[in-house]
Structures are given as structure tokens and as C-alpha cells.
Design a binder for these strands. Sequence first.
DNA 1: CGTTAGTTTGAGAGGACTCAAAGTCTGTGG
DNA 2: CCACAGACTTTGAGTCCTCTCAAACTAACG
Lengths: 198, 198
Amino acid sequence: MQAPLYDPSLDDFFDMIKTFITLSPESKLAMAGILEKRELPKGHHLVHAGAVCRHVYFIEKGLTRTYYVKDGKDVTDWISTEKTVATSIVSFITGMPDIRSIELLEPTVLWAIGHDDLQKLYNESHEIERFGRLLVSYGLVQMQQRFDDLHFATARERYRKLITQHPDIVQRVPLGMVASYLGITQETLSRIRADFTI
Amino acid sequence: MQAPLYDPSLDDFFDMIKTFITLSPESKLAMAGILEKRELPKGHHLVHAGAVCRHVYFIEKGLTRTYYVKDGKDVTDWISTEKTVATSIVSFITGMPDIRSIELLEPTVLWAIGHDDLQKLYNESHEIERFGRLLVSYGLVQMQQRFDDLHFATARERYRKLITQHPDIVQRVPLGMVASYLGITQETLSRIRADFTI
DNA sequence: CGTTAGTTTGAGAGGACTCAAAGTCTGTGG
DNA sequence: CCACAGACTTTGAGTCCTCTCAAACTAACG
């Protein structure tokens, strides 16, 4: 009987990423060395506005919101649910500060990967470099789809798409935050929703 | 006196990508083996709607437009100028067909990289895998910025930003295409522009 | 059970859209 | 070199969607 080489709950993480890569045992071990599991309360901030984001977070349980303030108004940029990634992507990639903050909308369990740790593994392992490439590629596909939704759709179309593709978000996220995520005001979303439920 | 190992005009390509990576001589040689230079006339389509996009294109000279048809209307999704990349990114990454087409708005000189060729080099070279990662990362940053522009800005703000950041696009691209790129109608853009020049 | 965060409702203003028509530019053939 | 066709842009009028500002309502939490 041999002790496991890494925290068995890390398999949740490897499950999460298996949509785009299955790592070799060595790479898993290497990743295990830099992944940090964290349990954080609702309201906690992972990233503060004006700071550099030095981590990527894989959400195992819970819900995060990336947002910023534009013209005095709170704008929700991204919402990350279970089995997805949260990070202030431009800041993480460029190393520059960004106006975006990330807050937890629920008590959250996540895996954090530090930027420098990851760079180190990139240097050491071709496979993990590939993991990085695929992770970003996957993010780019998601961003494009979100962009398309916003590009030439009415408020109504955007809401309809959201409730069909991510019904849980509407349940778990306050209406005002969902509204700005969709690029509309809270009042408009409230009225649209009233129409839909008749 | 030694013959160059690759077409010297390829240095334009290596210049183009040096904002994010400087390749080793071996990697340059490997890339030289898969890069194809093409000179194509205005109006030529690099990608057709409904097809899979199997190439990434680096624009050396000229101008491309990525677009699709939504509800019978032509929507400009992306505009690529000199020293930037054009591709139908979701299709290229996922290997699935996409509604996007790419056309040349001017006679264009570009470097084409085939998907399968690139995958092969990814397998052979860690450094080229890194090149891929950085290329996608760079694309993600651009996409995020474009997304932000669209998210909560008025038609006026979007136009102002475009003319300050990419004044050449307004000169070289027909107004209707610029309008849909900004997410507004041609008539609205025409009126905005009239105001600006007073 | 009060306080606060969150949501709904109302009224009015305004931006952007649609449909339609008139200009303007540009390249090609006579 | 001019004239015309087709592509592109502007202008107009009316409508509608979404916004803003304001106030009332509801739910959740300590």
C-alpha cells in the first residue's frame, strides 16, 4: 500500500482540465507542487482594482465575479462558476495593473496557481507549456463567444441566451450584476424578466 | 559567403512576432519550413463561411476583414492590418466550421501557417509551443480590450476610440464595415462622423 | 423587527434603429 | 476624356428600445 503522491482532491482539478488536456503522471506531480487549495468566504476579494493579478484560479465550488467601475458604475465583466477559471486575464498575461477586481459571490473552494510558479514549470516542461497554450486557447474561444453575444444582440436576446446556457447564473447572481454582465441596466433586465415569466 | 538558410523576407515575420518572442535560429528554420508567403488580390477570400479555418495569417502588407451574416446583415467581427494576425480563431482552435469569412479589403501580402504543420512543430519543439502560447495570449489581450470597448460605451465613445487608436482603419475601410465593427449602423456612424468634423 | 441590499415599477428623455431617398465618389468602357 | 453604373455615403422622418431619475416594494440578515 503506497501513499498517494499528491492530495487526492487534486483529481478534481485534473478532471476540470481534461476537456483540453490529460497530463502525464510527471506533469501532474509538477502541477501538484504549485497548486494551492483555498477555501474562502463570500465577499473575499481575489484581486483588487489597480493591482497586478498574479494568479489563475480554478473554481472547484462557488462563484466569482470579475468587475470594474466605469463612470462611477459597477460593470460585471465575467462570472466564473464551478469547473471554470477566474483571473484578471490581461493583467495576468501582461503583468500590468488592471482596473478589474475579482470577488467571491459565495463561499468558494478553489485552486490557485501563482504566475511565477507557472512560468517556472513552463520552462521545465514542454507538456505544461502546452497546458498553458490550451488553457489560453480555451479562454479565447469563450471570450469570442461572449463577444459575439454582445456584438449585435438586443437586451432580450442576450438574456434569453443566458438563461438557456447558464440558468444557474441567473439564480445565484444578483440581478444588477447580471444586468451589467449583459451590458444593460438593472431596470431594463427587471422589465425583460417580467415579460418572460408571463 | 554563405547562402541564407531561409528567405530573407521572412525576417519581416520574425520582426512581427518579436513583441512577444524572439526565436532561436533552429526555431526560425523550423518555422521557415512551414511559412508560406502569398500575394493575393483585393476581394480574395481567405476563409469561407461554413468552412473550417485551417490557417493563421500574418499580414505583412494589406488589410483583411473577418465578418459574418447575422439576421441578413453583414457584421464585421475583426479587422487586421499590417503586422497583425488574421484567422477565424474559434474555428482554428476547435477545428469546427464557423460562420465567419475573411476577405481582403486591399491587395495583400501575408504569411500563412497551416494548422497541421503548426501542430507538428508544437510536438517537435518546446520553443514553438511557447510561441503558440504567447500568440494566443496576445490575441486574448486584444480581444479583451475590444470587448471592453463594446461593453458599456456609446456609439460616440467607440468611434472616438477607434479614430485615436486606429486612424488608418477609418481611412481604409468602407464606413458600413466600420460601423458594424463598432456595433452600430452605418447611418448612425455617418451622423456621428458629421458631428466630429464640424 | 429594523436596516440594508436588492428588485420592481413609473414617467419622461434621448440615442440608435428602420425605411426611404437623395447625393457623391470611382472606375470602366465608349 | 467623358459618361454612366455601381458602390458608398449622407440626410430625413418617424419609431422604439433602453436609459435616467425617482420612488415604492421585498427579501434577507443580524
